[in-house]
């Protein structure tokens, strides 16, 4: 069992797809580098931190993008974002069985902040257009850097999120909140707290994610069961609105995720962070988000 979190972006792709099926678009040899980083005297990458291409999963064609957390925390710049947007747009005409987004990103790359922000909004629009066309977009989040900022919003725009316990999902990172609002608002050094707020278990309990163990095989197994589109319509959004309103009313003012888990009727909620994935899923079965 090879770990997802320890793998590079291309190792994740290779482990997920059928052997030898991956074909990369704009591979590193094509040198799609960020001119803005160079201008600031920063090291650049020949793929600008993301690999995009096509392959098969159990024989079905998929388009796939994988962000490389080791390069600038997977942050989105102009070229990086345009590669993902181009892939999503390609899927509208090519109509693969799904588009897989292997995300690991701190959000907008500050060195090219305006271009990164606009690029994220273009990714968001492209995801929504693809969903309207009925092609499912699935996020796999299991990297060490987690998924934050605009890519955290993008994640929640997609049909399905598959996430490991060790991964994190949020909007503002804990360090940013601590720096801006003070340590009493969010103590970013308290790792247990950070994971109770942003980790895969809390996101699963809230109904935002499907939890898997930190292995490429586990992600692959969950993926095969998740490749159906979930239409966005006025009716489905009204249902989502009711769910989110209920969550806000019941849990919006609670101090800690453990209080939320208790209010859902989970026995001994403080033990949840210690359970392995299977035991955790057993413990939260039937809990009311």
């Amino acid at each position: 069992m090879s770990s997802w979190s320890e793998a590079t972006a291309r190792q994740r792709i290779a482990g997920l797809l059928d052997a030898g099926s991956f074909i990369e678009f704009l591979p590193p040899e094509r040198r799609a580098v960020s001119p803005h980083l160079r201008e600031l005297g920063q090291p650049a990458a020949f793929d600008d931190g993301v690999a995009v291409g096509r392959g098969t999963l159990d024989g079905q064609t998929v388009l796939i993008a994988a962000q490389e957390g080791a390069f600038m925390g997977g942050a989105v710049g102009e070229v990086h974002g345009a590669k993902i947007t181009g892939l999503l747009e390609r899927a509208r005409t090519e109509r693969p069985a799904a588009v897989l987004l292997l995300l690991e990103s701190g959000g907008v790359r500050l060195h090219e902040a305006n271009a990164g922000l606009i690029a994220v909004s273009e990714i968001m629009r492209a995801v929504l257009a693809l969903r309207a066309a009925g092609v499912p977009v699935i996020v796999l989040n299991g990297g060490r850097y987690g998924v934050f900022g605009g890519m955290g919003i993008t994640t929640c725009l997609c049909d399905t999120l598959i996430m490991s316990e060790e991964a994190r999902l949020g909007l503002s990172g804990p360090e940013v909140i601590e720096t801006t609002m003070g340590v009493e608002e969010f103590d970013a050094a308290d790792r247990a707290l950070v994971w109770r707020v942003t980790g895969g278990k809390n996101r699963t309990i809230l109904g935002e994610a499907t939890l898997v163990a930190d292995s490429i095989d586990a992600f692959r197994a969950a993926l095969v069961a998740a490749m159906q589109p979930k239409p966005l319509t006025l009716e489905t959004l009204e249902a989502e609105h009711a769910t989110l309103g209920n969550r806000l009313d019941r849990f919006g003012d609670m101090e800690d995720a453990v209080d939320i888990w208790a209010a859902m009727g989970i026995d001994n909620p403080q033990r949840l962070p210690l359970l392995d994935t299977d035991a955790f899923l057993q413990a939260v079965k039937g809990a009311g988000a």
Binding site: G152, I153, T155, C156, L169, G170, L171, S172, P174, I177, E185, F186, R196, V197, T198, N202, R203, L206, E208, L244, R247, L248, F251, G252, D253, M254, E255, D256, A257, I260
Partner: peptide, 10 residues
């Protein structure tokens, strides 16, 4: 922190 706990990005 409270907004992040209930998944502000969602």
């Amino acid at each position: 922190r409270k907004d992040e706990t209930i998944c502000l990005n969602a």
